[in-house]
Simulated scan of single mutants.
Amino acid sequence: MITGIQITQADNADLIGSIWLVDQQAQQARCLAAASGFEADQQVALEQLGEFEFRELPVEGQSTGREGGQHLNVNVLKREVLEKLMAARERQEAGTASDEDSALLADNAQLTIRVSGYAVRFNALTLEQQRDVITRTFTQSM
C-alpha cells in the first residue's frame, strides 16, 4: 500500500516539509516535493531518510471504484527564482534586457502562483505586486 506523507520533523533538515509517497512493502520512498537535498521523482530506500515524524496525506488510487478525481498542484519555488524573473523584467522594461533575460522570461511565461486564493501568472503582476508576493511568501524562519 502506498502512503502519502509530509515530513514534519527529521534529523535531516532537508526533509522537513517535504512530501513523499511511501511504499512500506518495498521499503521505498518517492519524493514529490522538497525544498532542497532531494529531486522530484527521486526514489530512495526508506532507511536513507533516517528518523523522521510525519503527517499522513490522503492518496487516492484508481482502483477505489469512486468516480471523480483529485488534482494536486504542488509548486516548490525558491525566492531566488522569482527575484531573477523580477530583475529580468525590470531590465526588459528599462530597455536593457539581454538575450538571457528574454529567454528566462519566455521559459517562465506560464509560471502560476496563488494570490489571495486566485491563480495568476507571476509575470502578469506589476513589479510592485511581484515584490509584495515575494515579501509575503518567503520568510527567514517559521
Rank of each mutant, 00 (worst) to 15 (best):
E60R: 15
E51C: 04
V44C: 08
T96A: 12
S116M: 02
G95W: 07
V59G: 00
V120S: 03
Q27S: 15
V22W: 09
E47H: 07
E51S: 13
F52Y: 15
A34H: 09
L125D: 06
A109R: 12
F122E: 03
N123F: 08
G117D: 07
A40W: 01
L125A: 02
V115S: 03
D41M: 15
L77V: 04
R114F: 09
T64N: 11
R121W: 00
S102F: 00
A88F: 04
Q62S: 10
G65W: 08
E51G: 03
L82Y: 02
V59Q: 06
V115I: 14
A45N: 08
S116F: 05
P58I: 10
T96G: 00
D23Q: 10
L104A: 05
A97N: 07
L72F: 07
F38W: 15
A87N: 11
K78T: 04
A97G: 04
W20N: 00
Q24P: 12
R55A: 07
R66F: 13
T64H: 10
A35M: 11
D23N: 15
W20H: 01
R121V: 10
Q42F: 09
G65E: 02
G61M: 10
L57T: 07
L127G: 11
A106P: 00
D101A: 03
A87L: 15
T96H: 06
S102T: 09
D99P: 01
S63Y: 11
A35C: 04
L105M: 09
A45P: 01
L104K: 01
L77T: 02
A33G: 11
F52Q: 00
E80H: 08
Q43C: 12
E80R: 14
D107H: 08
L72V: 12
A35Q: 12
V81W: 01
L82Q: 01
D107Y: 06
S98H: 01
P58A: 14
